[in-house]
């Protein structure tokens, strides 16, 4: 009895294709021939226990980790050692990190304008105009001239989202974006992500926020021990997950929260 995978609707265009992706860290087998296709506009939540390979998988998609074998194709470009391909892909794929990673020596505004000016060769004035628009969108326009250390964790993460958006990415990768936040700051970040999800951008979100996954995601992928165990809709995953391992995980996180 297979849970129905989200049907590859013909109107949806594949934007990320991972085939037989394999990755080892020394003797630890982090990803075991993982295959998945992600479609334009889709919001996918990637869940699973710690060390299951979900973050590693996400990080292989923009080559912050190199995969040992298999193939990853992003928007028609093969991800490999070719630096031209890599630069092209990184321009299209934005990333938001667990620890924000804002550039500590730059103001909030400069954090956002740096990549558009250097990579897209935007004029400073245009880049700043765009940065202000994005800061307004995440509700932080008044903080433009401050430094990252002066902001709360939730505010920093919202800036990090604005920074990623400034490159007009086709895909946004979120690597546990709320895990480093105090509980009262989680919601302000999730609110921004929710708004993004409804704007139609393709999102892959590694998260432990089951409420968010259930409400916002179109699709849930459950990782365990380096393989995708479940790939289904939130309704199916949260009510009738196929594998015992997934049901056990769900009961654990429910008790945990």
């Amino acid at each position: 009895m297979n849970s129905p995978a989200p049907s590859p609707d013909t109107s949806l265009r594949p934007i990320i294709e991972a085939r037989q992706v394999d990755k080892r860290f020394g003797s630890f087998h982090a990803l075991k021939k993982v295959s998945a296709v992600f479609y334009e506009g889709q919001v996918t939540a990637i869940v699973g226990p710690s060390g299951s390979g979900k973050s590693t998988f996400l990080r292989t998609l923009n080559r912050l980790e190199t995969h040992d074998s298999g193939e990853i194709v992003i928007d028609g470009i093969v991800l490999n050692d070719d630096l031209k391909n890599l630069d092209a892909i990184r321009r299209e794929v934005g990333m938001v990190f667990q620890s924000f990673n804002l550039f500590t020596h730059l103001t909030i505004l400069r954090n956002i304008t740096l990549a558009p000016m250097r990579v897209r060769k935007m004029e400073r004035a245009a880049a700043e105009q765009k940065a202000r628009t994005l800061l307004e969108r995440v509700g932080l326009l008044s903080q433009a001239d401050k430094y990252p250390v002066q902001l709360s964790g939730g505010q920093q993460q919202r800036v990090a989202i604005a920074r990623a958006l400034a490159m007009d990415p086709k895909v946004l990768l979120f690597d546990e974006p709320t895990s480093a936040l105090d509980p009262e700051m989680v919601n302000e970040v999730l609110a921004v992500m929710r708004e993004l999800a409804y704007s139609g951008i393709t999102m892959l979100v590694v998260t432990h926020e089951m409420g968010f996954a259930r409400e916002v995601a179109d699709r849930i992928i459950f990782f365990d021990d380096g393989v995708i165990l479940e790939d289904t809709t939130p309704e199916v995953f949260f009510t009738q997950a196929e594998h015992e391992r997934a049901r056990a995980f769900l009961s654990q996180v429910r008790h945990g929260f």
Binding site: D87, A115, V119
Partner: peptide, 13 residues
Amino acid sequence: PWGQVEAARALGL
């Protein structure tokens, strides 16, 4: 911190 490098590389620098 290595995260600074990752963030810059992920942005396409």
